[in-house]
């Protein structure tokens, strides 16, 4: 009983207990959103050791909630997607992208289709996918919405709702796969990493759903930190956080993101994403 009370108190401290001397971060991984507290609690512990300050993890579910928390200084560091990072840095002057996942330097999305459509893997997005039903992932996702929409507009010169006879937002990559696999939606687009992971775990039946096109690469997830942290946590704090992230090599910690390792990143790396977001009027 005492143990469970202790657990509850801890959980609450994790969520709401951040105080002025606590360095707080959030992360919405692109796959496996379960047990966030447990998994990222370990990351907090690691950062705490490296930085010698109290570090807490706050679980946030939607991109917009994460951006809001970052903007209101409830979290000072965040593991953002490409689009949400651009947006956050747009809203919080002086905030900087400090590191990205190794894979995020050349991220990509897969267009997938139900077998009944007859679409096959091609070097170019097939023009005849027009007039099918099409689902994105979450509205604020880079790999499930922003970049695919950009490539679609390039190919068809039209917004998605003019290209397809119906456009939906499944809200999640796993759900996109489930929906296209069941034939409810004919075509969809997913984060390639989620596809590979679900394929490996046997959730995908290749007789029913298949990749029909791979997008060009683009930068995606990155760590973004508020510029004003140095006033609270001392000079060179940003540098120290960056070092701590870049030297993180415990597979158990990296698995939470899941990334091989982190590599340096700058705001400029995301200029392309920013241009696309502006063009599509998402910024």
């Amino acid at each position: 009983m005492m143990k469970s009370i202790f657990f509850i108190v801890c959980a609450w401290l994790l969520v709401f207990g951040a105080n002025a001397t606590t360095f707080t971060f959030t992360a919405i991984p692109d796959q496996d959103e379960t047990q966030l507290n447990t998994r990222f609690g370990k990351v907090a512990e690691y950062l705490s050791q490296q930085l010698n300050v109290d570090v807490r993890y706050v679980p946030v579910k939607s991109y917009s909630a994460a951006i809001t928390a970052f903007r209101n200084n409830q979290v000072q560091l965040a593991w953002f997607g490409g689009l949400s990072g651009v947006k956050a840095r747009h809203l919080v002057p002086n905030s900087v992208a400090i590191a990205q996942g190794y894979e995020d330097q050349f991220f990509k999305s897969y267009f997938i289709a139900h077998h009944s459509t007859g679409f096959k893997l091609a070097g170019q997005l097939p023009l005849n996918i027009a007039d099918s039903s099409f689902t994105f992932g979450s509205k604020g996702s880079t790999s499930g919405r922003l970049m695919p929409e950009y490539f679609l507009r390039q190919r068809f010169n039209q917004p998605p709702n003019k290209i397809f006879n119906r456009v939906g937002f499944s809200g999640d990559h796993s759900r996109t796969i489930a929906l296209v696999q069941s034939g409810a939606w004919q075509v969809g687009v997913v984060n390639y990493a989620v596809w590979e992971q679900e394929l490996a775990s046997g959730k995908i039946d290749l007789n029913k759903v298949n990749v029909i096109w791979t997008t060009p690469t683009y930068p995606d997830y990155q760590w973004t930190i508020r510029g004003d942290v140095e006033q609270r946590f001392g000079k060179r704090f940003i540098e120290r956080v960056t070092d701590a992230l870049l030297t993180m090599d415990d597979p158990d910690l990296l698995k939470s993101f899941p990334r091989q390792k982190f590599v340096p990143a700058t705001n400029a790396d995301y200029d392309s994403v920013k241009q696309v977001a502006k063009a599509i009027k998402l910024l």
């Binding site: 959980a11 969520v15 496996d32 959103e33 379960t34 579910k61 809200g171 999640d172 796993s174 489930a178």
Partner: peptide
């Protein structure tokens, strides 16, 4: 952090 938080996660991840 209500029950819907976990329900939505579990459901959308299958």
């Amino acid at each position: 952090p209500t029950i819907g938080y976990y329900l939505e996660t579990a459901f959308s991840q299958g």
